[in-house]
Amino acid sequence: MLQRMGRRQGALPFHHARRDRRRGCQLCAAAELGTGALALGGERAAIGPHGVVAGAALAFLVGDTTGRSVDVVRRAAGLSSNSLEASINRSLTEPGVAGRDRVEATLVIYAALRLFAGRLLAMQLGPRLGTKLSPDALAAWHDWISGAMKALAWGQPR
């Protein structure tokens, strides 16, 4: 059922003009990663865009990217979360379509992703929060968190 929902929502959302997509827009690419991949990998697919946000937000803290760039990928991650939420709502209103264990595990992933995104945003907006850690320490956290999110999303070794 979740795969069915993902496929139905696989079309890109309304936010972007077609001509921008042809230019290889980062937002559209990330949105396709989130919404399209739901059809292929279920719950795992929503994790991918959030991993991109984590990498961008931590890069922002060390001054490697701009806040605007983080906002772009964050929007895409939000869309993927919304897709996952719609899948959960559907499974809750259609009892028996998805097993209880599967729904519970999906809810855990959904809640964790929301908390994850909120914490990253707090870190980004916190005044000089990132500068209180050494660049090497932040880089190590960046690599570990990005790698772990990729591993969860695509099953790569951590």
């Binding site: 595990a105 964790a112 908390l115 914490r119 929060l129 772990a148």
Partner: peptide, 30 residues
């Protein structure tokens, strides 16, 4: 008032905790 470095570390640990929860849930999904 919390020290910024401690807050930053706390935030990173919270991220790690969310990762752990997701990993457990993924394992349950199989």
């Amino acid at each position: 008032m919390p020290r910024p470095a401690a807050v930053a570390i706390d935030s990173l640990v919270r991220l790690a905790r969310q990762l752990e929860l997701m990993a457990d849930a993924i394992a349950r999904l199989g």
